[in-house]
């Protein structure tokens, strides 16, 4: 059974390009609908009930985060993969904290995009190297860091750090698995757990870090 995908992007040209690429290179994915604005997206997603929404971050009227906010409470079973030209830390962290299961940039190759869509549809998380770097940075223990209130959510385990480092170095899940002598499934578990912490941790550092950070 193919993964039903809904495209949200305010650039019609970009939507057409992604749709054409996905249609030609794979049978695994079926594009069931598309939208060019927040309002259209909310209505379209509610109507089509896709498995995965490919979500642009920058749009008028609140962008991808607004779509996430409106849909997540109504239809929690829809998963979101953020797809954006922006590499800004603030955008990346915000859309993840709003509930996206992953973040990839628009320069991603079509094959990699297919892999990423399938992965989030199976409930796993997708981290671009950039996102992995941001999360490592946000959870770093630096002098003067905020106190840990909930170790379960506010700290990464050493193993999670290892996985994130390899993701940031551009390793694929399979390569990470063989590097760390663990199974791909275990890598996926670690990444999902990091995603959960990134979304739920109330550590002051995390939100402040994203806004403070000037580096791209």
């Amino acid at each position: 059974m193919s993964v039903r995908v809904f495209l949200v992007d305010d650039h019609a040209l970009f939507r057409a390009g992604v749709k054409a690429e996905l249609d030609t290179i794979t049978e695994e994915i079926e594009v069931v609908g598309e939208a060019g604005s927040v309002g259209e997206a909310v209505a379209g997603i509610a109507h089509h009930r896709p498995d995965v929404v490919l979500l642009d971050v920058h749009m008028p009227d609140g962008g991808g985060a607004e779509v996430l906010r409106q849909i997540r409470t109504k239809i929690p079973e829809v998963t979101f993969l953020a797809l954006s030209v922006s590499d800004a830390a603030e955008d990346v962290i915000n859309v993840i904290r709003a509930g996206a299961r992953g973040y990839v940039t628009k320069t991603i190759s079509s094959q990699e995009l297919v892999r990423a869509v399938v992965r989030v549809s199976e409930g796993d998380a997708v981290f671009s190297p950039r996102l992995a770097g941001f999360v490592l940075d946000a959870f770093a223990d630096r002098p003067g860091a905020a106190p840990i209130s909930d170790p379960e959510l506010d700290l990464l385990t050493p193993r999670e750090r290892d996985v994130l480092r390899l993701l940031a170095r551009g390793y694929a899940y399979k390569e990470i698995a063989s590097e760390l002598f663990i199974s791909v499934k275990t890598v996926e578990t670690h990444v999902s757990s990091v995603l959960r912490k990134t979304q739920l941790s109330n550590r002051y550092e995390l939100s402040r870090w994203a806004t403070d950070r000037r580096l791209v």
Binding site: P129, R130, G133, L136, D137, A140, A168, G170, L215
Partner: peptide, 9 residues
């Protein structure tokens, strides 16, 4: 293309 990720400074 050189994709770069820098953690810390």
């Amino acid at each position: 293309a050189v994709s770069q990720v820098v953690v810390g400074d």
